[in-house]
Design a binder for these strands. Sequence first.
DNA 1: GTGAAAGCGCTAACAC
DNA 2: GTGTTAGCGCTTTCAC
Lengths: 335, 335
Amino acid sequence: MRKKVTLKQLAQELGLSISTISKSLKNDPEISQATIDRVKKLAKEHNYKPNALAVSLKSSKTRSIGVVIPDILNNFFAKILLGIEMEASKNNYKIITVITNESYEKEVDYLDMLSYNGVDGFILAISQETQSKGLVEHFNEILKDDIPIVMLDRVSDEVYCDKVVVDDNQAAKSAVEVLVKQGCKKIGVVSGIHKLSVGKARLQGVKEAFEIEGRELHYLKLRQNSDFLVEISNFLKEHQFDGIIGLDEPSAVSAINAANMLGLNVPNEVSVIGFSNGLLAKHSYPGLTTVSQHAKRMGKTATKILIDKLELRADRYLPDTKYITTSIVKRGSTK
Amino acid sequence: MRKKVTLKQLAQELGLSISTISKSLKNDPEISQATIDRVKKLAKEHNYKPNALAVSLKSSKTRSIGVVIPDILNNFFAKILLGIEMEASKNNYKIITVITNESYEKEVDYLDMLSYNGVDGFILAISQETQSKGLVEHFNEILKDDIPIVMLDRVSDEVYCDKVVVDDNQAAKSAVEVLVKQGCKKIGVVSGIHKLSVGKARLQGVKEAFEIEGRELHYLKLRQNSDFLVEISNFLKEHQFDGIIGLDEPSAVSAINAANMLGLNVPNEVSVIGFSNGLLAKHSYPGLTTVSQHAKRMGKTATKILIDKLELRADRYLPDTKYITTSIVKRGSTK
DNA sequence: GTGAAAGCGCTAACAC
DNA sequence: GTGTTAGCGCTTTCAC
């Protein structure tokens, strides 16, 4: 660590006591203005900064937030992290980032490690494995110790904490609407995230929208290691869709590519809409019309909520779930 | 922070002194085995974990690494971060991540903040602004305070520290070779990263390879906010290339898309090769043949080097620059 | 074999 | 107004 000037040294140089220095730097009215000025001048000269470790040990506050991300290669989570980092640093908080790689075990270990390493609170998105197993005890342990958690995107009803989520059901309905409005007769649904809560919510939204219109659901689950392009092109050939909804970004982009491969014009013969406004959506050809979830804003919002709680500005309020509204970003994959 | 069992409490329960407890947990030979066993048993029962803050204050070591990333939405850096996180957590280090968003000012602020907040060392990639201004004083300040730095990918010759880089010059030459081998007669070069050290090194590599073969260089700089698709398709139409090298992932993928847009078959009429094996390369149509830089491995390597230094395993060694070898990932954009 | 005491750098209650 | 002291939880030297 950086060798620092301490209160002790300042005290010695000025022939004052440590506590006088400490108080002066805090503008304590007990101290004379003259002394305060002298102390501050010297402190500035020496570029004095309090030792964060000592302050933390004393106060049991570290001004650091544990951020638990399932998959940083996912652009959505990268954006969320960016939002978190921006808001945290604005408020002078550090973030300690861990990546669970969708593993339950790592999630448990990391939560334990960070909670014992003194983060003031957590912002987290539940890992895929944890979600499919439905385990939540490790979260509740943390909450029991009075360490606040804000859950992001992938949440659990069985944990009583603040949450920031997308209204995926609603978002899915608006995606259906886009395709319906341009006159699609037969719409196929593809998903690479059928195991995730968000994947289920989106599918549910599509189903509900389809039921109202009396449409039949054609649904293709893409397994992790399968060849999306092949699977989707078979699906397309079999059903002759004129519209495809991809419940995640990779599957939607793969749908565009599959159509290209089959020589089908997008959007004239097949329209495609997806979720997440990431790199893939921007760089597909044609560009993907997509439901933007405003990931950066989600990260910022979660951070704001957590910091409010930490600084006791919101202590008395009950846990709340904040819905981030989505918006449609139009690109070339729809008319 | 989590309310923890302390040595004091264990001492009280067992009627021993704090120092005896502390020594017992460290298997100090001064302590009788019987006592050690009793202490350890109780510690386990109470799930005792030492207070990291107190240990750090005492030892001036925090077991944390400051990670400074210019742009987390760039898949390359996300992969690097993943590698860093994996290696750090394996060695029981935490990482504190900050994102400079390519800004010099943020970089300076963050370095200062983290160095005063007690990170043991830094892993960083220089921001674009810092690189184009050529400023390095803030790095040297840190080094002067004996805080080690490992620079990743975007490095500076004027800073005397360990570095992990790709041999971009060599990588560019092998990219050229791929196109030459498949018989491309006229190759165009496009770049969205002409301001970065890596962009320059790649361009230099291409130039050198072209000179040897007596080829003429056709080079298109893409500005940040320009429409890549339009620019590249004009470039293609004007010069009738049968091969394109994109010096970064987005520009290479845009080249594929531009060719598609012009109705040119990739790879039969135009072959395309790029750099970075990220999401875009995988999900373009056809898939992008690319120079993989093994970003994850770069992150791991940098972390290993730093931790070795921190644990004094390598103290006497001089700063070293490690070159990570690249490899070509073949996909559909070349024959 | 065990314990007392000092000290890491800071804060805050309490003297003087 | 300024200083003394205790204490956050730990490690480590030195007594006993």
